[in-house]
Amino acid sequence: MSLNILLVEDDGVFAQGMAEELRGFDHTVTVAADGREALAAVDSQPFDAVVLDRMLPRIDGISVLERLRSGNMTLPVIMLSALGRSVEKVEGLEAGADDYVVKPIASVELNARLLALVRARGWTAGSADTIRAGDIVVSPTRFRAWRAGTAIDLGKLEFKLLNEFVANADTVLTRAMLVERVWGYDFAPTTNIVDVYVRHLRVKLTADGGEDPILTVRGVGYMLRG
């Protein structure tokens, strides 16, 4: 199983060494050096798991955890710390960590813990936190979307429209269905509002040169190819 991991560690030497070792297990690893970078990274792209140092500059690990959980973030988090007393472990777990590991730890053990945690939690890109269709990932809880790992800047209605498409990938959605689910109307509007927003969405989804994933089904509506 290959994971997309966020490693949050302010010790640059340790972070780079651990990142390289985890990449040796076929994982993709992004390194953040402090709490603010960690929160920005989580906001900018989807991860399968986070390895989070407890003692960080700017925003400490406990605070990062509390912010993630208060925002209904469900992705697995392993807290990594030199502080190993029971009271410190309990504090980390109560803040929302799924596991608490005391440094130093061998990369093979950390890898095993990550894989076991992801399997045990049943966390996947199709869970409550994110849904996926092809290379498009949407987080309904964070109102964020990405294509091929790049964040897409969407307005509220554009996001709701994309979320509806992704949740129903490879299914034709009529204009009436989209009007009801996205705009909340139970009647067909007299304007071409759906077509206008689909055009806006297409522009943003193909801004980096990607293929248009939205198929027009003439006389019926639209379908997102998954």
Rank of each mutant, 00 (worst) to 15 (best):
V220I: 15
R132H: 09
F143V: 13
D11H: 12
R144K: 13
M73E: 10
V102S: 03
T74N: 05
L114A: 04
A33G: 05
H200D: 04
I78G: 06
A40Y: 02
D48A: 06
T141C: 10
S2D: 02
V172C: 10
M1I: 09
N111D: 14
V198L: 01
E66V: 06
S70L: 10
V196E: 15
F187L: 07
E180W: 08
G134L: 00
A125F: 13
I59D: 03
F14P: 01
R67H: 12
M18C: 08
R132N: 06
N168K: 13
V217G: 05
G209Q: 01
S44W: 03
P189C: 11
N72W: 12
I193H: 08
G209T: 00
I78R: 04
G35C: 05
D186P: 04
S107D: 05
A112Y: 12
V203E: 00
L162F: 01
T124N: 12
E37K: 07
M73V: 14
V138S: 07
F47Q: 07
V220D: 12
K103Q: 13
G209A: 05
A97T: 07
K156I: 08
P57N: 04
S86Y: 02
T124P: 05
T216A: 04
R225L: 00
A145W: 00
S70G: 13
S70T: 11
F47R: 03
E164F: 04
T28R: 15
L3H: 12
A145C: 04
T141A: 15
V102Y: 03
D195T: 12
L161A: 03
R144N: 10
L65C: 05
L75D: 03
L205F: 00
I214H: 00
N111W: 08
L110E: 07
V217S: 05
E180N: 14
T174G: 09
T174W: 06
H200K: 12
G92S: 03
L68F: 08
A15G: 02
Q16P: 01
G209K: 01
K89N: 07
T171K: 14
W183A: 07
F47L: 01
A112W: 05
R119E: 12
R54V: 11
D34Y: 03
I193T: 13
H200S: 08
A188Y: 13
D186V: 11
T130D: 02
Y185C: 06
D153A: 09
A112K: 10
P140N: 11
Q16D: 11
G155C: 02
V102H: 03
A125D: 10
R175S: 08
V220H: 15
D98K: 08
G155V: 03
P104A: 05
V102T: 11
R119V: 15
R54H: 07
G61E: 05
L117N: 08
N4H: 11
